[in-house]
Write a protein that binds this DNA or RNA. Structure first.
Lengths: 337, 337
DNA sequence: GTGAAAGCGCTAACAG
DNA sequence: CTGTTAGCGCTTTCAC
């Protein structure tokens, strides 16, 4: 499966009969032109024969680069992230970088420790998927790009999905089915997706002339199934009647299913629900979930590309890259009873 | 979020007025006892004040260790893996190691490239979750531990779940419900889990005096929803009648749901289905899946511990660590019609 | 075009 | 106990 002793630049140099620095030049594409084609060819050959493999550690010590980028997310176990990470890793690997992922579990202290550790590891860049709106970034050491979430202050580059577009499509769909009293189970307002989707909900409802009373929205403290259940249960008990609910993400939507079941209500018979993210397997739920699909893999890939760019051009401008969202209609939505 | 210029051992040494090697000794727990408590204290203080952070790259170049372990899996996007990786990472991080994960997509060539890259990165150990039965390991360079799967030849350490136990419980459950014609949608026979569960099925069926004809088992070529559907559809069309099916894993079981739906059959009304792995969210499927739960996180943690042990004691013996499996009964199983 | 020399930040003998 | 020395494998001036 693997084999062979450690072979260094010098070994290759010795075999060809040149100096180690010459070998280095040949193997480094940017300096390769400095050396005669003939020698270059012989070096390549010797390197291949000997099974030479550059030592990234030595390279890193010399160049102060680790060829490594850190990815910080709340929890790998949240199905939203694996596809994004695949997108990141696939594109970063192609560029010669290794990705290191760490989980914060939504714990500020843990996040601090992780960032410390990443810094200790000398990552060349950071992709952050765990930021809160009020966070402020320090890009003094390494470039940073935000993924999925953004922050309130400007001067960052972030890759996010189209929240207004997605929520807009969801409401259009529900309205065309005949719904008017559409509630919103909102995400935590201290993360950008929470507030963005909430605001998109308000503005779209108003555009369509649909009622948007405070009583029609409930805020969750985290993106979890439990919170979704808790908040929708509140509606069911004491709030104004509703015929449909838009959850700020799929986990929350699943919690809504739980609440409905607990209350003896049927979905979509009594109440329609739509989610956000289209995470894996929601098409197999009972009922299959109507939700807003975001290009998870592409978001990761775009973030990786942005990070590569920023590493090459630290002075480059900031940008918010917005990827499209599209509603996927399944069986959790139907006309109101 | 992060700040400060690069501060080295020498900076700390200068500040305290000692030699760099003394600082190194203080900061290295195994050599700390060599230096006087007083100096040690002052070094600690200076290091803290200066915000000193050891450079793992330099450390690695010197010691030929990268403090890094590679984890190779088929696909991060398969819900089975994230919990395992959390278990690995949490454990390894506590020991000062960073984990790097890579996906093979079940592609032999890609796997080869990944192993190459891991080797290039000089990982200190490897955790492999992508092996096939006939693979042979070469631990010349770094220790290896297998996760979830094993291989046919001995002389490895692996952490797996109790396949016979889990399958046994599943069949007991089905039998107690009154089923006799229990089919098996087997996994790929070139991976250990595929054959282990298949053999467990045969032997348990025989033990209970239940029929186990070749017609009652179908083999899948991969662990995927599509294969599960394909194979169960075959049964439904042309094989002997059955009232229950044990799928070799949850993905396959979900494929069985698809096949049943396509055939207009009800689960569990017409046919009961049980899966394996209890991956996230199968409790929310339609119907909630009865399945064998394996301690995913613990499997990861155990593999990490094994790897740490092997790194410290390369001469240590091999062992197969088997973690318990338990059947979780939900709504996809019922008495036969 | 190519070799020599220095050094990235750290650890590990070896002296003292 | 602590300082000196050397060197991990590579890149990068600087000469030639």
């Amino acid at each position: 499966m693997m084999a062979g002793p450690r072979v260094t630049l010098r070994d290759v140099a010795r075999k060809v009969g040149v100096h180690a620095s010459t070998v280095s030049r040949v193997l480094n594409s940017s300096t390769r032109s400095m050396v005669s084609p003939e020698i270059a060819r012989r070096v390549d050959e010797a390197a291949r024969d000997l099974g030479y493999r550059p030592n990234p550690i030595a390279y890193g010590l010399k160049t102060r680069r680790s060829l490594t980028v850190g990815v910080v997310i709340p929890d790998l176990t949240d199905p939203l992230f694996p596809p994004m990470i695949r997108g990141i890793d696939d594109t970063l690997a192609r560029a010669g970088y290794t990705t290191i992922v760490a989980n914060t579990d939504n714990d500020r202290e843990r996040e601090r420790v992780i960032l410390e550790r990443m810094r200790g590891r000398h990552v060349d860049a950071l992709i952050l998927g765990s930021t809160r709106r009020e966070d402020v970034l320090d890009e003094d050491e390494v470039p940073v790009v935000l993924i999925n979430r953004s922050i309130d202050v400007g001067g960052v580059t972030a890759v996010v999905s189209d929240n207004p577009g997605g929520i807009g499509q969801a409401i259009d769909h529900l309205a065309s089915l005949g719904h008017r009293r559409i509630a919103h189970v909102a995400g935590p307002q201290y993360v950008s997706t929470g507030i963005a989707r909430y605001q998109a909900y308000r503005s779209k409802m108003e555009d369509l002339g649909l009622p948007v009373t405070p009583d029609l929205v409930g805020h969750c403290e985290s993106y979890s199934r439990g919170e979704g259940k808790r908040v929708l249960s509140l509606f069911l008990q004491s709030r104004e009647p509703l015929t449909a609910v838009i959850a700020a993400n799929d986990l929350l939507a699943l919690g809504c299913y739980d609440a409905l079941k607990a209350a003896g209500l049927r979905c979509p018979g009594d109440i329609s629900v739509v989610g956000f993210n289209d995470m894996p397997f929601v098409d197999m739920m009972d009922p299959p979930l109507t939700t807003v699909r975001i290009p998870q893999y592409d978001i990761g890939a775009a973030a990786a590309r942005a990070v590569l760019e920023r590493m090459n051009e630290p002075a480059g401008g900031f940008e918010i890259i917005v990827l499209p969202s599209t509603l996927v209609v399944r069986a959790s939505t139907a006309p109101p009873p």
